[in-house]
Amino acid sequence: MKAIEVVNLVKTYGAGETAVHALKGVDLDVFESELLLLLGASGSGKTTLISIVGGILSATSGNCVIRGREIVGLPQSKLPKIRLENIGFIFQGFNLFPALTTQENVEIALDLKGVRGGKAKKRAAELLERVGLKEKLKTFPADLSGGQKQRVAIARALAGEPPIILADEPTAALDSESGRLIMDLLQELAHEQNRAIVVVTHDNRIFDYADRIVKIEDGRISKDESNEQTDAATWMAVPSASVNIPQTA
């Protein structure tokens, strides 16, 4: 079943001669239980694409259907609820709240869903236990490693039980081992919990985790193949300038 359906999506920033055409008619379906890698060079339009799919940026034209609901053209006031009910975000920079402990970082996501007090504390502890951070409930983000921070971010993204997770370079700031742990987690979430997961990445170490790899170039989808069809070497053409860690064999 389709979790995300994008049809002829266009996004233009500005107007006239200075207009920037970030997306020039993108078509993309993402299914439940699928882990999709979205590749592209800087400025190719991948951030714009996940911003629109995530309901935090409006498209110029086209369609974007999230679990059966069209979001293009919806008023801004309706989008927070769509995000809250359907989408969990994982960011390259983790975007944790430095003033809150790991448990409180997860609780804030539950607070948005209306879950508070003891129930929220218990649920946050369960989620952190699930990502292997049971011992770090009262630790502040500053005292965590990069991998641990990203696991807190995953626990936070899962707090609302979203059927779709959008992850932006989740392994870029991590060492190989931490990156593998994160991808194991995301793969488990896709395959065992039927979530649709879109990972924007430059990191060719994680290609093996993908069910499908989609490449976006100059605002258009240039390649869309299942991992079985894919020859990993052909994807290496993706610029890797922003990969922050040494590539593993």
Partner: peptide
Amino acid sequence: IREYGTLKAMGATNFY
């Protein structure tokens, strides 16, 4: 501001 942006992405309303 970045934290508010994150909250917005997480589904927080402007009122929140």
